[in-house]
Amino acid sequence: MQYEFDWGMLLRSPYFGWIVEGVLTTFHLALLSWVLALTLGIVIGIFRVTNSRALRVIGTAYVELFRNIPLIVQLFLWLYVAPQLLPTETRLWWNRLDYVPYWTAVIGISFYTASRVAEQIRSAILAIPPGQFKAALSTGLTTTQTYRFVIVPYALRIILPALTSEFLTIFKNTALALTIGVVEITATTRKIEAWSFRGIEAYTVASLTYAATTILVVVFMSWLERRYYIPGLIRREREAA
């Protein structure tokens, strides 16, 4: 293997500026999409366990539709197909926007991720023992208080690990936005490789960005989990062994 490393090039112009830009794009794309995905996912997840049959059908249809089409295809649908379905006025307004690919990516990634979040929410709600609700009501708490003090704190502890991994997934999925022209960190390093033929240096930057973020998130979340850890809940199996 013949390859001369030049790590210094990463700090030189224009590459350094590109890298900073790419990392920032990855981060705000991920965070913005996450907020939307979480909100929509919670709503759809609750739809799936309500008593209303209509809402359950809507929730199920949403989840099945969005998780059975590859994310890139969904991004293409949002970019090429969805604007055609808009009224002319709105379509013109949309096309005049700056960063159309960016907003398309936000919509595409958050709608896709919402279907996954919804499934996590649903299984967390189903995991709450029904006796808890009755027990809380029997002590004289109102329904609102029961949710506030008993159900939600319980469900949060169950769902936190699953949501952590969903966040890491959305973070990695932002890389797919490059297929519709968003220059996030993976696209940036691809561009640097094309310009300089320094693939190892360039891709190392991207890999480190993802790895470092993963480590930070995992460390923070496990601190959070430990802090709110309740003996006997969740990690029951490990103790029994």
């Binding site: 890491l168 490059l178 993976t186």
Partner: peptide, 24 residues
């Protein structure tokens, strides 16, 4: 852990670049 923290598309770029380099 290393592979799981990276997106597939980036891994694809890595190998696309590295394999010709390694095999020459």
């Amino acid at each position: 852990n290393v592979l799981r923290s990276n997106p597939l598309i980036l891994i694809l770029f890595w190998f696309y670049f590295l394999i010709p380099l390694i095999t020459g």
